[in-house]
Design a protein around this nucleic acid. Structure first.
Length: 512
RNA sequence: GCCGCGUUGGUCAAGGGGUUAAGACGCCUCCCUUUCACGGAGGAAUCACGGGUUCGAAUCCCGUACGUGGUACCA
Protein backbone atom coordinates (compact mmCIF):
# COMPACT_ATOMS: atom_id res chain seq x y z
CA UNK A 1 0.00 0.00 0.00
CA UNK A 2 1.50 3.27 -1.13
CA UNK A 3 1.48 6.28 1.12
CA UNK A 4 -1.22 8.70 0.03
CA UNK A 5 0.20 11.74 -1.69
CA UNK A 6 -1.94 14.40 -3.32
CA UNK A 7 -0.98 17.58 -5.01
CA UNK A 8 -2.47 20.94 -5.67
CA UNK A 9 -1.36 22.92 -8.69
CA UNK A 10 -2.91 26.36 -8.51
CA UNK A 11 -3.19 28.41 -11.63
CA UNK A 12 -0.71 31.25 -11.54
CA UNK A 13 -2.80 33.54 -13.66
CA UNK A 14 -5.80 34.27 -11.58
CA UNK A 15 -4.85 33.94 -7.96
CA UNK A 16 -7.09 31.84 -5.78
CA UNK A 17 -10.80 31.88 -6.28
CA UNK A 18 -13.45 29.85 -4.50
CA UNK A 19 -13.09 26.77 -6.68
CA UNK A 20 -9.33 26.79 -6.31
CA UNK A 21 -9.40 26.94 -2.55
CA UNK A 22 -11.97 24.20 -2.41
CA UNK A 23 -9.82 21.97 -4.60
CA UNK A 24 -6.91 22.65 -2.28
CA UNK A 25 -9.11 21.95 0.72
CA UNK A 26 -10.41 18.63 -0.59
CA UNK A 27 -6.89 17.57 -1.49
CA UNK A 28 -5.72 18.53 1.96
CA UNK A 29 -8.60 16.81 3.76
CA UNK A 30 -8.08 13.62 1.84
CA UNK A 31 -4.35 13.61 2.46
CA UNK A 32 -4.71 14.27 6.16
CA UNK A 33 -7.49 11.75 6.57
CA UNK A 34 -5.26 9.05 5.16
CA UNK A 35 -2.13 10.17 6.91
CA UNK A 36 -0.63 11.25 3.61
CA UNK A 37 1.18 14.23 2.18
CA UNK A 38 -0.24 17.37 0.65
CA UNK A 39 1.98 18.84 -2.01
CA UNK A 40 1.84 22.15 -3.84
CA UNK A 41 3.43 22.44 -7.23
CA UNK A 42 3.59 25.82 -8.82
CA UNK A 43 2.31 26.12 -12.32
CA UNK A 44 4.36 28.77 -13.99
CA UNK A 45 4.58 27.23 -17.39
CA UNK A 46 3.57 30.31 -19.25
CA UNK A 47 5.92 33.06 -18.22
CA UNK A 48 4.28 35.76 -20.25
CA UNK A 49 1.03 35.28 -18.41
CA UNK A 50 2.52 34.76 -15.03
CA UNK A 51 1.16 37.14 -12.47
CA UNK A 52 3.78 38.39 -10.08
CA UNK A 53 2.99 37.79 -6.48
CA UNK A 54 0.48 35.07 -7.19
CA UNK A 55 2.65 32.39 -5.67
CA UNK A 56 3.05 34.17 -2.35
CA UNK A 57 -0.60 35.10 -2.38
CA UNK A 58 -1.67 31.50 -2.74
CA UNK A 59 0.43 30.41 0.20
CA UNK A 60 -0.98 33.22 2.30
CA UNK A 61 -4.55 32.32 1.46
CA UNK A 62 -4.02 28.68 2.28
CA UNK A 63 -2.26 29.56 5.48
CA UNK A 64 -5.18 31.73 6.51
CA UNK A 65 -7.45 28.75 5.87
CA UNK A 66 -5.24 26.59 8.06
CA UNK A 67 -3.84 24.58 5.18
CA UNK A 68 -0.11 24.03 5.25
CA UNK A 69 1.55 21.94 2.56
CA UNK A 70 3.91 19.16 3.52
CA UNK A 71 5.94 19.86 0.43
CA UNK A 72 6.17 22.94 -1.75
CA UNK A 73 8.61 25.58 -2.84
CA UNK A 74 8.46 26.91 0.68
CA UNK A 75 8.57 23.51 2.36
CA UNK A 76 10.83 21.42 0.14
CA UNK A 77 10.76 17.65 0.45
CA UNK A 78 12.65 15.06 -1.54
CA UNK A 79 10.86 15.54 -4.81
CA UNK A 80 11.79 19.04 -5.82
CA UNK A 81 12.10 21.34 -7.50
CA UNK A 82 8.46 22.28 -7.17
CA UNK A 83 8.33 25.09 -9.66
CA UNK A 84 7.80 24.12 -13.26
CA UNK A 85 10.34 26.47 -14.77
CA UNK A 86 12.99 24.69 -12.74
CA UNK A 87 11.98 21.29 -14.07
CA UNK A 88 12.25 22.16 -17.73
CA UNK A 89 14.93 19.60 -18.54
CA UNK A 90 12.99 16.83 -16.91
CA UNK A 91 9.97 17.41 -19.12
CA UNK A 92 12.05 17.70 -22.26
CA UNK A 93 13.57 14.36 -21.52
CA UNK A 94 10.27 12.57 -21.32
CA UNK A 95 8.95 14.39 -24.37
CA UNK A 96 11.93 13.12 -26.32
CA UNK A 97 11.32 9.63 -25.07
CA UNK A 98 7.73 9.80 -26.29
CA UNK A 99 8.90 10.85 -29.73
CA UNK A 100 11.48 8.13 -29.82
CA UNK A 101 8.87 5.52 -28.96
CA UNK A 102 6.59 6.80 -31.68
CA UNK A 103 3.94 8.09 -29.30
CA UNK A 104 4.57 11.73 -30.04
CA UNK A 105 5.95 13.74 -32.92
CA UNK A 106 7.49 17.03 -33.91
CA UNK A 107 5.12 19.57 -35.42
CA UNK A 108 6.57 22.53 -37.25
CA UNK A 109 3.33 24.25 -38.14
CA UNK A 110 3.42 27.96 -37.60
CA UNK A 111 0.69 29.89 -35.93
CA UNK A 112 -0.49 31.04 -39.34
CA UNK A 113 -0.55 27.53 -40.73
CA UNK A 114 -2.65 26.40 -37.79
CA UNK A 115 -5.05 29.25 -38.29
CA UNK A 116 -5.28 28.43 -41.96
CA UNK A 117 -6.01 24.80 -41.16
CA UNK A 118 -8.79 25.78 -38.78
CA UNK A 119 -10.19 28.11 -41.37
CA UNK A 120 -9.94 25.64 -44.24
CA UNK A 121 -11.52 22.72 -42.49
CA UNK A 122 -14.17 24.72 -40.75
CA UNK A 123 -17.71 23.72 -41.64
CA UNK A 124 -21.07 24.49 -40.12
CA UNK A 125 -21.00 21.01 -38.70
CA UNK A 126 -17.52 21.41 -37.30
CA UNK A 127 -16.82 25.03 -36.37
CA UNK A 128 -13.55 24.25 -34.62
CA UNK A 129 -11.49 21.53 -36.34
CA UNK A 130 -8.97 19.81 -34.13
CA UNK A 131 -5.41 18.80 -34.84
CA UNK A 132 -6.39 15.15 -34.72
CA UNK A 133 -5.51 11.88 -36.42
CA UNK A 134 -7.09 12.90 -39.71
CA UNK A 135 -5.81 16.46 -39.83
CA UNK A 136 -2.28 15.60 -38.77
CA UNK A 137 -1.76 13.80 -42.06
CA UNK A 138 -2.09 17.12 -43.82
CA UNK A 139 0.21 19.16 -41.62
CA UNK A 140 3.91 19.85 -41.44
CA UNK A 141 5.14 17.36 -38.86
CA UNK A 142 7.61 14.56 -38.47
CA UNK A 143 4.91 12.01 -39.28
CA UNK A 144 4.60 13.30 -42.82
CA UNK A 145 8.11 14.55 -43.45
CA UNK A 146 10.95 12.18 -44.15
CA UNK A 147 13.50 11.54 -41.43
CA UNK A 148 15.98 13.66 -43.30
CA UNK A 149 13.61 16.56 -43.76
CA UNK A 150 12.79 16.47 -40.09
CA UNK A 151 16.42 16.36 -39.12
CA UNK A 152 17.16 19.27 -41.38
CA UNK A 153 14.43 21.38 -39.87
CA UNK A 154 15.60 20.52 -36.39
CA UNK A 155 19.19 21.33 -37.29
CA UNK A 156 18.13 24.68 -38.58
CA UNK A 157 16.46 25.22 -35.19
CA UNK A 158 13.08 25.65 -36.76
CA UNK A 159 10.56 26.28 -33.99
CA UNK A 160 8.52 23.19 -33.24
CA UNK A 161 6.26 21.69 -30.67
CA UNK A 162 5.90 18.08 -29.61
CA UNK A 163 2.40 16.66 -29.86
CA UNK A 164 0.98 13.36 -28.61
CA UNK A 165 -0.09 10.97 -31.27
CA UNK A 166 -3.60 9.99 -30.28
CA UNK A 167 -4.62 6.53 -31.47
CA UNK A 168 -7.18 6.55 -34.20
CA UNK A 169 -9.68 4.14 -32.82
CA UNK A 170 -9.39 3.17 -29.21
CA UNK A 171 -11.74 3.47 -26.30
CA UNK A 172 -10.06 4.57 -23.16
CA UNK A 173 -11.83 4.37 -19.87
CA UNK A 174 -11.12 4.90 -16.25
CA UNK A 175 -12.88 5.09 -12.91
CA UNK A 176 -13.49 8.49 -11.42
CA UNK A 177 -13.91 8.38 -7.65
CA UNK A 178 -16.89 10.71 -7.91
CA UNK A 179 -18.42 9.81 -11.24
CA UNK A 180 -17.67 6.16 -11.71
CA UNK A 181 -16.74 4.71 -15.09
CA UNK A 182 -15.97 7.25 -17.78
CA UNK A 183 -14.91 6.50 -21.32
CA UNK A 184 -13.64 8.39 -24.33
CA UNK A 185 -12.97 7.56 -27.93
CA UNK A 186 -9.41 8.52 -28.69
CA UNK A 187 -10.24 9.48 -32.26
CA UNK A 188 -12.30 12.33 -30.93
CA UNK A 189 -9.47 13.77 -28.90
CA UNK A 190 -6.89 16.02 -30.56
CA UNK A 191 -3.13 15.66 -30.60
CA UNK A 192 -2.43 17.91 -27.66
CA UNK A 193 0.77 19.89 -27.56
CA UNK A 194 3.05 18.44 -24.91
CA UNK A 195 6.09 20.63 -25.24
CA UNK A 196 5.77 24.19 -26.46
CA UNK A 197 8.09 25.97 -28.84
CA UNK A 198 9.78 27.73 -25.95
CA UNK A 199 10.69 24.39 -24.44
CA UNK A 200 8.20 24.64 -21.60
CA UNK A 201 5.78 21.80 -21.07
CA UNK A 202 2.06 22.23 -21.30
CA UNK A 203 -0.03 21.24 -18.34
CA UNK A 204 -0.67 17.86 -19.94
CA UNK A 205 2.96 16.78 -19.93
CA UNK A 206 3.79 18.52 -16.69
CA UNK A 207 1.10 16.91 -14.55
CA UNK A 208 1.81 13.44 -15.73
CA UNK A 209 5.56 13.73 -15.29
CA UNK A 210 5.31 15.52 -11.97
CA UNK A 211 2.67 13.24 -10.58
CA UNK A 212 4.74 10.21 -11.42
CA UNK A 213 8.02 11.63 -10.18
CA UNK A 214 6.45 13.01 -7.02
CA UNK A 215 4.78 9.67 -6.37
CA UNK A 216 1.29 11.11 -6.41
CA UNK A 217 -1.36 8.51 -5.58
CA UNK A 218 -4.56 10.50 -6.09
CA UNK A 219 -5.37 13.25 -8.52
CA UNK A 220 -8.17 15.58 -7.52
CA UNK A 221 -8.80 18.49 -9.80
CA UNK A 222 -11.59 20.54 -11.30
CA UNK A 223 -14.13 19.08 -13.68
CA UNK A 224 -12.78 21.24 -16.48
CA UNK A 225 -9.95 18.72 -16.75
CA UNK A 226 -12.20 15.78 -17.48
CA UNK A 227 -12.04 16.14 -21.27
CA UNK A 228 -8.26 15.94 -21.24
CA UNK A 229 -8.14 12.98 -18.90
CA UNK A 230 -7.72 10.52 -21.82
CA UNK A 231 -4.56 12.35 -22.85
CA UNK A 232 -3.16 12.01 -19.36
CA UNK A 233 -4.15 8.36 -19.11
CA UNK A 234 -2.44 7.61 -22.39
CA UNK A 235 0.69 9.45 -21.34
CA UNK A 236 0.94 7.36 -18.19
CA UNK A 237 0.70 4.33 -20.39
CA UNK A 238 3.16 5.52 -23.05
CA UNK A 239 5.72 6.48 -20.47
CA UNK A 240 5.47 2.97 -19.08
CA UNK A 241 4.10 3.96 -15.71
CA UNK A 242 0.81 2.14 -15.82
CA UNK A 243 1.46 0.24 -12.62
CA UNK A 244 1.97 3.51 -10.76
CA UNK A 245 -1.25 4.98 -12.11
CA UNK A 246 -2.97 7.20 -9.55
CA UNK A 247 -6.69 7.32 -8.83
CA UNK A 248 -8.72 10.19 -10.17
CA UNK A 249 -11.53 12.43 -9.07
CA UNK A 250 -12.86 15.39 -10.99
CA UNK A 251 -14.43 17.91 -8.67
CA UNK A 252 -17.65 19.69 -9.59
CA UNK A 253 -17.57 23.32 -10.55
CA UNK A 254 -18.71 26.14 -8.30
CA UNK A 255 -21.34 28.17 -10.09
CA UNK A 256 -22.33 31.79 -9.81
CA UNK A 257 -25.80 33.27 -10.26
CA UNK A 258 -25.40 32.80 -14.02
CA UNK A 259 -23.06 30.03 -15.03
CA UNK A 260 -19.61 29.32 -13.72
CA UNK A 261 -18.61 31.57 -10.86
CA UNK A 262 -16.41 34.37 -12.06
CA UNK A 263 -14.60 37.32 -10.60
CA UNK A 264 -17.16 39.50 -12.31
CA UNK A 265 -19.97 37.86 -10.37
CA UNK A 266 -18.38 39.04 -7.17
CA UNK A 267 -18.33 42.64 -8.29
CA UNK A 268 -21.77 42.40 -9.79
CA UNK A 269 -23.57 40.77 -6.89
CA UNK A 270 -21.49 42.15 -4.05
CA UNK A 271 -19.85 39.08 -2.62
CA UNK A 272 -16.23 37.98 -2.47
CA UNK A 273 -14.86 35.26 -4.72
CA UNK A 274 -11.29 35.26 -3.43
CA UNK A 275 -10.13 34.04 -0.06
CA UNK A 276 -8.17 37.22 0.58
CA UNK A 277 -7.84 40.62 -1.03
CA UNK A 278 -6.37 40.28 -4.46
CA UNK A 279 -4.86 43.16 -6.35
CA UNK A 280 -4.28 42.47 -9.98
CA UNK A 281 -0.73 43.71 -10.58
CA UNK A 282 -1.53 44.58 -14.16
CA UNK A 283 -4.68 46.60 -13.67
CA UNK A 284 -4.18 47.45 -10.00
CA UNK A 285 -7.76 46.43 -9.54
CA UNK A 286 -8.64 45.28 -6.03
CA UNK A 287 -10.98 42.38 -5.43
CA UNK A 288 -12.13 42.09 -1.85
CA UNK A 289 -11.56 38.77 -0.15
CA UNK A 290 -13.58 36.77 2.34
CA UNK A 291 -11.06 37.58 5.02
CA UNK A 292 -11.33 41.32 4.58
CA UNK A 293 -15.09 41.12 4.25
CA UNK A 294 -15.13 39.83 7.79
CA UNK A 295 -15.24 36.07 7.45
CA UNK A 296 -13.61 33.80 9.96
CA UNK A 297 -11.31 31.23 8.37
CA UNK A 298 -13.22 28.50 10.20
CA UNK A 299 -16.43 29.64 8.54
CA UNK A 300 -14.78 29.96 5.17
CA UNK A 301 -13.41 26.44 5.02
CA UNK A 302 -16.63 25.13 6.50
CA UNK A 303 -18.85 26.69 3.86
CA UNK A 304 -16.47 25.70 1.12
CA UNK A 305 -16.24 22.11 2.29
CA UNK A 306 -20.00 21.60 2.28
CA UNK A 307 -20.45 23.25 -1.08
CA UNK A 308 -20.51 20.00 -3.00
CA UNK A 309 -19.93 17.56 -0.20
CA UNK A 310 -21.82 16.28 2.82
CA UNK A 311 -21.39 13.32 5.07
CA UNK A 312 -24.94 12.03 4.74
CA UNK A 313 -26.06 13.39 8.08
CA UNK A 314 -27.78 16.68 8.84
CA UNK A 315 -24.60 18.16 10.28
CA UNK A 316 -23.55 21.42 8.71
CA UNK A 317 -21.01 22.93 11.04
CA UNK A 318 -17.63 21.27 10.96
CA UNK A 319 -14.21 22.34 12.14
CA UNK A 320 -11.10 21.27 10.29
CA UNK A 321 -10.58 18.28 12.54
CA UNK A 322 -14.07 16.95 11.88
CA UNK A 323 -13.74 17.62 8.18
CA UNK A 324 -10.59 15.57 8.04
CA UNK A 325 -12.29 12.78 9.94
CA UNK A 326 -15.50 12.74 7.93
CA UNK A 327 -14.50 13.76 4.44
CA UNK A 328 -14.82 11.22 1.68
CA UNK A 329 -14.38 11.73 -2.02
CA UNK A 330 -17.18 9.30 -2.85
CA UNK A 331 -19.64 11.62 -1.13
CA UNK A 332 -18.70 14.61 -3.23
CA UNK A 333 -21.56 15.57 -5.49
CA UNK A 334 -21.06 15.14 -9.19
CA UNK A 335 -23.14 18.18 -10.07
CA UNK A 336 -21.89 21.74 -9.86
CA UNK A 337 -23.10 23.76 -6.89
CA UNK A 338 -24.31 27.32 -7.02
CA UNK A 339 -22.67 29.57 -4.48
CA UNK A 340 -25.16 31.21 -2.14
CA UNK A 341 -23.81 34.23 -0.31
CA UNK A 342 -26.69 34.28 2.16
CA UNK A 343 -25.82 30.80 3.31
CA UNK A 344 -22.16 31.75 3.42
CA UNK A 345 -23.00 34.54 5.85
CA UNK A 346 -25.03 32.16 7.93
CA UNK A 347 -21.97 29.96 8.35
CA UNK A 348 -19.96 32.93 9.52
CA UNK A 349 -22.66 33.86 11.99
CA UNK A 350 -22.64 30.35 13.38
CA UNK A 351 -18.89 30.46 13.77
CA UNK A 352 -18.95 33.85 15.45
CA UNK A 353 -21.43 32.43 17.93
CA UNK A 354 -19.37 29.39 18.74
CA UNK A 355 -15.80 30.53 18.38
CA UNK A 356 -13.72 30.45 21.53
CA UNK A 357 -12.93 33.92 22.82
CA UNK A 358 -9.38 33.14 23.83
CA UNK A 359 -7.91 30.98 21.12
CA UNK A 360 -8.69 28.62 18.30
CA UNK A 361 -8.04 24.90 18.27
CA UNK A 362 -5.45 25.65 15.64
CA UNK A 363 -3.62 27.79 18.17
CA UNK A 364 -4.44 31.00 16.38
CA UNK A 365 -5.84 33.96 18.23
CA UNK A 366 -9.52 33.67 19.03
CA UNK A 367 -12.51 35.88 18.63
CA UNK A 368 -11.27 38.52 21.07
CA UNK A 369 -8.24 39.21 18.94
CA UNK A 370 -10.23 39.44 15.75
CA UNK A 371 -12.83 41.77 17.23
CA UNK A 372 -10.16 43.93 18.80
CA UNK A 373 -8.52 44.20 15.45
CA UNK A 374 -11.68 45.16 13.66
CA UNK A 375 -12.52 47.79 16.29
CA UNK A 376 -9.06 49.23 16.04
CA UNK A 377 -9.36 49.68 12.30
CA UNK A 378 -12.59 51.55 13.03
CA UNK A 379 -10.66 53.86 15.33
CA UNK A 380 -11.67 52.26 18.60
CA UNK A 381 -8.74 51.21 20.72
CA UNK A 382 -9.43 48.66 23.44
CA UNK A 383 -7.51 48.67 26.68
CA UNK A 384 -9.81 46.65 28.89
CA UNK A 385 -9.87 43.03 27.73
CA UNK A 386 -12.29 41.84 30.36
CA UNK A 387 -14.79 44.48 29.38
CA UNK A 388 -14.33 43.55 25.74
CA UNK A 389 -14.97 39.92 26.55
CA UNK A 390 -18.23 40.81 28.30
CA UNK A 391 -19.29 42.98 25.39
CA UNK A 392 -18.49 40.29 22.84
CA UNK A 393 -20.48 37.78 24.82
CA UNK A 394 -23.38 40.21 24.92
CA UNK A 395 -23.47 41.16 21.24
CA UNK A 396 -22.02 38.28 19.23
CA UNK A 397 -25.44 36.83 18.52
CA UNK A 398 -26.25 39.82 16.38
CA UNK A 399 -23.03 39.96 14.39
CA UNK A 400 -22.89 38.17 11.08
CA UNK A 401 -19.63 39.51 9.72
CA UNK A 402 -16.72 40.71 11.81
CA UNK A 403 -17.23 44.41 10.96
CA UNK A 404 -20.70 44.17 12.50
CA UNK A 405 -18.93 44.37 15.83
CA UNK A 406 -18.11 47.98 15.09
CA UNK A 407 -21.77 48.88 15.22
CA UNK A 408 -22.77 46.50 17.96
CA UNK A 409 -19.78 46.74 20.25
CA UNK A 410 -18.28 50.10 19.35
CA UNK A 411 -20.58 52.23 21.49
CA UNK A 412 -19.46 50.43 24.63
CA UNK A 413 -16.07 51.98 24.21
CA UNK A 414 -16.76 55.20 22.42
CA UNK A 415 -19.49 57.79 22.92
CA UNK A 416 -21.72 57.74 19.84
CA UNK A 417 -20.87 60.63 17.58
CA UNK A 418 -24.30 61.00 16.12
CA UNK A 419 -27.66 60.22 17.62
CA UNK A 420 -30.75 59.13 15.78
CA UNK A 421 -32.57 62.21 17.02
CA UNK A 422 -35.38 61.77 14.50
CA UNK A 423 -36.58 58.77 16.46
CA UNK A 424 -36.97 60.86 19.61
CA UNK A 425 -37.63 64.48 18.70
CA UNK A 426 -41.26 64.21 17.52
CA UNK A 427 -42.34 62.90 20.89
CA UNK A 428 -39.90 64.80 23.03
CA UNK A 429 -41.39 67.17 25.62
CA UNK A 430 -40.70 68.89 28.89
CA UNK A 431 -42.01 66.01 30.94
CA UNK A 432 -39.47 63.72 29.38
CA UNK A 433 -36.73 66.24 29.83
CA UNK A 434 -37.57 66.50 33.53
CA UNK A 435 -37.73 62.76 33.84
CA UNK A 436 -34.22 62.31 32.52
CA UNK A 437 -32.86 65.16 34.58
CA UNK A 438 -34.20 63.51 37.70
CA UNK A 439 -33.04 60.10 36.52
CA UNK A 440 -29.52 61.41 36.18
CA UNK A 441 -29.57 62.64 39.73
CA UNK A 442 -30.83 59.32 40.96
CA UNK A 443 -28.23 57.44 38.95
CA UNK A 444 -25.59 59.62 40.46
CA UNK A 445 -26.71 58.47 43.86
CA UNK A 446 -26.39 54.78 43.13
CA UNK A 447 -23.66 53.29 45.24
CA UNK A 448 -23.28 49.85 43.71
CA UNK A 449 -23.54 50.30 39.93
CA UNK A 450 -25.42 47.19 38.95
CA UNK A 451 -28.01 46.21 36.42
CA UNK A 452 -30.81 45.66 38.95
CA UNK A 453 -30.18 48.98 40.66
CA UNK A 454 -30.15 50.98 37.44
CA UNK A 455 -33.31 49.33 36.27
CA UNK A 456 -35.01 49.61 39.65
CA UNK A 457 -34.36 53.33 39.88
CA UNK A 458 -35.75 53.79 36.39
CA UNK A 459 -38.91 51.84 37.04
CA UNK A 460 -39.60 53.50 40.34
CA UNK A 461 -39.29 56.91 38.77
CA UNK A 462 -41.52 55.89 35.87
CA UNK A 463 -44.18 54.72 38.31
CA UNK A 464 -43.83 57.87 40.35
CA UNK A 465 -44.35 60.04 37.29
CA UNK A 466 -47.16 57.85 36.11
CA UNK A 467 -45.62 57.59 32.62
CA UNK A 468 -45.22 54.69 30.25
CA UNK A 469 -41.87 52.90 30.35
CA UNK A 470 -41.95 52.23 26.64
CA UNK A 471 -41.94 55.89 25.80
CA UNK A 472 -38.90 56.53 27.92
CA UNK A 473 -36.94 53.40 27.15
CA UNK A 474 -36.46 54.26 23.51
CA UNK A 475 -35.06 57.75 24.16
CA UNK A 476 -32.74 56.24 26.76
CA UNK A 477 -31.52 53.72 24.22
CA UNK A 478 -30.86 56.41 21.66
CA UNK A 479 -29.00 58.43 24.28
CA UNK A 480 -26.74 55.55 25.18
CA UNK A 481 -26.13 53.83 21.85
CA UNK A 482 -27.11 56.40 19.26
CA UNK A 483 -29.71 54.31 17.47
CA UNK A 484 -32.46 51.74 17.65
CA UNK A 485 -30.26 48.72 18.13
CA UNK A 486 -28.18 46.85 20.69
CA UNK A 487 -28.84 44.66 23.70
CA UNK A 488 -30.92 45.50 26.76
CA UNK A 489 -30.55 49.17 27.71
CA UNK A 490 -29.76 48.67 31.37
CA UNK A 491 -27.18 46.09 30.54
CA UNK A 492 -25.48 48.66 28.37
CA UNK A 493 -25.64 51.24 31.13
CA UNK A 494 -24.09 48.80 33.55
CA UNK A 495 -21.19 48.05 31.27
CA UNK A 496 -20.36 51.58 30.20
CA UNK A 497 -20.37 52.76 33.83
CA UNK A 498 -22.03 55.41 35.89
CA UNK A 499 -20.14 58.48 34.76
CA UNK A 500 -20.41 57.64 31.07
CA UNK A 501 -24.11 56.84 31.34
CA UNK A 502 -24.91 60.14 32.98
CA UNK A 503 -22.66 61.99 30.57
CA UNK A 504 -24.40 60.48 27.55
CA UNK A 505 -27.87 61.25 28.88
CA UNK A 506 -26.96 64.84 29.64
CA UNK A 507 -25.31 65.37 26.28
CA UNK A 508 -28.21 63.87 24.44
CA UNK A 509 -30.80 66.01 26.17
CA UNK A 510 -29.18 69.07 24.67
CA UNK A 511 -29.74 67.68 21.22
CA UNK A 512 -33.42 66.85 21.44
C1' G B 1 -21.27 21.31 -34.47
C1' C B 2 -18.67 17.36 -31.87
C1' C B 3 -17.19 15.20 -27.14
C1' G B 4 -17.53 14.83 -21.72
C1' C B 5 -20.19 15.71 -17.25
C1' G B 6 -24.60 16.86 -14.90
C1' U B 7 -30.27 17.74 -13.62
C1' U B 8 -34.51 16.40 -6.08
C1' G B 9 -38.15 23.33 -3.54
C1' G B 10 -35.32 30.04 -5.20
C1' U B 11 -30.24 27.90 -3.12
C1' C B 12 -27.21 23.84 -0.59
C1' A B 13 -28.91 18.97 -0.10
C1' A B 14 -30.53 13.53 2.22
C1' G B 15 -32.74 9.54 0.03
C1' G B 16 -30.39 5.04 -5.01
C1' G B 17 -37.12 0.26 -6.39
C1' G B 18 -42.41 0.62 -1.66
C1' U B 19 -40.67 7.19 2.68
C1' U B 20 -46.37 11.59 4.82
C1' A B 21 -39.54 12.83 -0.27
C1' A B 22 -35.04 14.40 5.77
C1' G B 23 -32.37 18.71 7.12
C1' A B 24 -30.19 23.71 6.29
C1' C B 25 -30.15 28.84 3.99
C1' G B 26 -33.61 32.38 2.27
C1' C B 27 -38.89 33.89 2.38
C1' C B 28 -43.77 34.27 5.20
C1' U B 29 -46.81 33.88 9.98
C1' C B 30 -46.95 33.59 15.14
C1' C B 31 -44.50 33.44 20.16
C1' C B 32 -40.58 35.58 23.15
C1' U B 33 -38.45 40.51 23.61
C1' U B 34 -41.06 47.93 25.92
C1' U B 35 -35.31 48.48 20.27
C1' C B 36 -32.86 45.33 16.78
C1' A B 37 -31.25 40.63 16.84
C1' C B 38 -30.79 35.61 19.04
C1' G B 39 -34.10 31.80 20.30
C1' G B 40 -38.83 28.90 19.86
C1' A B 41 -43.35 27.10 17.06
C1' G B 42 -45.52 26.80 12.37
C1' G B 43 -46.13 27.71 6.82
C1' A B 44 -45.51 28.10 1.39
C1' A B 45 -42.21 25.67 -2.05
C1' U B 46 -39.18 20.08 -5.15
C1' C B 47 -38.04 14.69 -7.86
C1' A B 48 -36.66 18.61 -15.96
C1' C B 49 -39.75 16.07 -19.84
C1' G B 50 -41.24 11.61 -22.68
C1' G B 51 -41.01 6.56 -23.15
C1' G B 52 -39.81 1.82 -21.25
C1' U B 53 -38.62 -2.28 -17.20
C1' U B 54 -41.60 -3.52 -12.78
C1' C B 55 -47.19 -5.36 -8.92
C1' G B 56 -44.70 -0.68 -7.76
C1' A B 57 -39.85 4.35 -10.32
C1' A B 58 -37.32 10.43 -7.51
C1' U B 59 -34.50 5.79 -7.47
C1' C B 60 -32.93 1.16 -13.05
C1' C B 61 -32.70 1.66 -18.82
C1' C B 62 -33.37 4.59 -23.39
C1' G B 63 -34.44 9.13 -25.69
C1' U B 64 -35.32 14.48 -25.52
C1' A B 65 -34.66 19.13 -23.36
C1' C B 66 -31.88 22.23 -20.53
C1' G B 67 -27.40 23.54 -17.93
C1' U B 68 -22.25 23.27 -17.79
C1' G B 69 -17.17 22.21 -19.27
C1' G B 70 -13.80 21.01 -23.24
C1' U B 71 -12.84 21.50 -28.32
C1' A B 72 -5.58 26.79 -27.64
C1' C B 73 1.98 26.52 -28.28
C1' C B 74 -4.33 28.69 -21.11
C1' A B 75 -4.35 26.30 -17.00
Amino acid sequence: MRKVRVRFAPSPTGGLHLGGVRTALYNYLFAKKHGGDFIIRSEDTDQSRFVTGAEEYIFECLKWCGIEPDESIQHPGNYGPYRQSERKDIYRNYADQLVKDGNAYYAFDTKEELEKMREDFKTTENPSPQYDYSIRKKMRNSLNLSANETKELLDKTTPYVIRVKMPENEVIHFTDMIRGDISFETGLVDDKVLLKADGMPTYHLAVVVDDFLMKITHIFRGEEWLPSAPVHLLLWKYLGWENAMPEWAHLPLIMGPNGKLSKRDGAKYGFPVFAMNWTDPKTNELTEGFKEKGFLPEAFINLLAVLGWNDGTAQEIYNMEELIEKFSMARVHAAGAKFDYEKAKWFNHEWIKRLNIESLPSGQAGLRFQVKDILLTAGIAITDNSLLDKVIELVKDRCILLPDFVQHAGFFFKTPETLDTDAVKPKWNDDKLKFFQEYCQLLNGIVTWELVEIEHVFKTLVAEKNSKPGELLLPLRIMLVGGKFGPAVFQIAELIGKAETIKRIENAMKQF
